[in-house]
Each structure stands twice: as C-alpha cells, then as structure tokens.
C-alpha cells in the first residue's frame, strides 16, 4: 500500500473506531464536545512559563485513553504528521526571550525555552484531545451536537463536507497516482513536469465527486439537520462525566497541583 492508501485507511479506521460501542462512544456528543472545548480553552489559558502546571493537564487525555481503550501508539502514529507541525510553533521563542527565569542547580533556563516548551505541550494536548473526540464520536454526531447549540446550519454543513472531502480528495489522489505509476513503471514519484496537470485533474475530479455526494444527500431529504437515530436523551452519565472533569480541570488550573504533590513526597 502506498502512502495515500495508508492515509485513507487511517481515516477509515478512525471512523470505524468512532462507531464502536464503547462507554465513551455512547456518551452524548454534546457532553463530549463541551468537555473538549472547555479542556482546550483551559489548557491554552495557562501562563507561558507554567510548565509544571501544564504537564498535569495531560491527566485528562491519559484518562480518556485508558477508559476508551484507544491505543496511544496508534494515536501517535496517526498524528505523526500533525504533531511536529503544531509543536514547531514556539521554536523561535528561545531566540527572543533570553531572560533567565529559572535556575536548576547551576543551569540557567531562559524564559524563551520555557515558553517554547509550554507552547509545544499546549499544542500537543489540544491536538490529542481533539483526536479523542473524533475517535470516540462519529462526525454526524458532532455536527448534531453543534446544531443543538445553534451553530448555524451553513457552518455545520461545511464542517461535515470538509471532513468528507478529505477522504474524497485522497481517493482521487490515489487513483491518479496509481494510473500514473502504471504508465511510468520503475519511476520514483511523479515527474515534476506533470505535477500541474495531475493536481488539476485531481482537484476537478474530487470537486465533481464532492458535488455528487452533496447532491446525493439533498436527494435523500437532507436539509441541514442531523438525525443520528440513536436515542440521544441525556443520561446521568452525560452530565457526570463532563462535570467531574470540568471540576478536575478547574482544580488543575487554579492550584499548582504538581508542586503540591511534589511537596508531599519531598
């Protein structure tokens, strides 16, 4: 299987995961959506030098990985392209902020280094929590939840279509590179002279197909509302889970838990 094939099957296995019948998957999409958004907001709000406080925030993704029985290794593998990119956001900080903010033994740590690390961890935690939402909640249910909180139809439909479009685009990319490889045997990659026309083909065809997909939804009564079919009545656990985590997250944010714990053992 080539790289594109791999990417497609990873998206597909992610969707399959999201449909599995596990406890976390059965939680109401709205409660997971709220919790994820809240978690991300709090994570991002940590001060730029508060590395130890931030590290403790990994508790939430760690716990969800545990209870959802999702494989952490698979997650890293799937996110291997994204994580380095988001982690690179703070890479220049050490060059701009050279004020010493911390001394460990005889080592002086610049503020820039610290803020780079916090920024990286923020990014990774944000991506991981998003991954956990997607891996435990089908896209239609996320859209359904978005509609419950009155996000406009247009916006929600666009989210859905973009999500679908990624797969369509990848499928077309695979089709075209396969057709190319068949006619250029033994050649590594695609010759740069035909990049333009292949790319054009791919975009045109995938747009056609995306258009057909949308038409097919319209013809089957789609009007921008999402009906998931499941009895999406809120269960006690749908409240308990986000409230419990909401409380923990607030605690982690307000109190220097890492230092307190450290104090216990020292």
């Amino acid at each position: 299987m080539n790289k594109i094939g791999q990417a497609i099957s990873e998206i597909q296995s992610l969707e399959t995961l999201s449909k599995e019948d596990r406890w976390v998957n059965r939680l109401h999409p709205l409660s997971k959506l709220f919790l994820t958004v809240f978690y991300i907001a709090v994570t991002v709000s940590f001060p730029k030098y508060d590395l130890s406080g931030l590290l403790v925030m990994a508790l939430y993704p760690a716990a969800v990985f545990l209870v959802s029985e999702l494989s952490f290794k698979d997650a890293l593998r799937r996110l291997r392209v994204v994580l380095p990119l988001v982690a690179a956001v703070g890479i220049l900080n050490p060059f701009f902020d050279r004020e010493v903010v911390l001394t460990i033994g005889s080592v002086q740590v610049w503020g820039g280094v610290l803020s780079m690390l916090t920024l990286m961890i923020k990014a990774v935690l944000t991506v991981l929590s998003g991954y956990l939402l997607i891996a435990t909640t089908p896209i239609e249910k996320i859209c359904y939840a978005l509609r419950i909180i009155h996000i406009p139809k247009v916006f929600v439909v666009v989210v859905l279509l973009i999500y679908r479009y990624v797969t369509v685009l990848l499928q077309e990319a695979r089709r075209i590179t396969q057709a190319y490889a068949l006619r250029a045997p033994g050649q590594k990659g695609v010759h740069y002279k035909v990049w333009g026309s292949l790319l054009g083909q791919m975009l045109l065809r995938s747009m056609d197909r995306a258009n057909d997909l949308y038409d097919s939804m319209l013809l089957r009564g789609f009007d921008g509302e999402f009906h998931t079919g499941a009895k999406e009545k809120l269960k006690p656990s749908d409240f308990l889970w986000p409230v419990l985590w909401g409380a923990i997250i607030i605690l982690l944010r307000l109190f220097p838990v890492a230092e307190l714990l450290g104090g216990l053992f020292l």
């Binding site: 399959t16 089908p138 679908r164 499928q171 057909d212 997909l213 939804m217």
Partner: peptide, 10 residues
C-alpha cells in the same frame, strides 16, 4: 458512482 452515493460508515 456508488462512492458518491454512500457516505455514512456502515
């Protein structure tokens, strides 16, 4: 094209 018709997971 059936791939344009089917879009849910199962």
């Amino acid at each position: 094209d059936s791939d344009s018709q089917l879009f849910m997971t199962t």
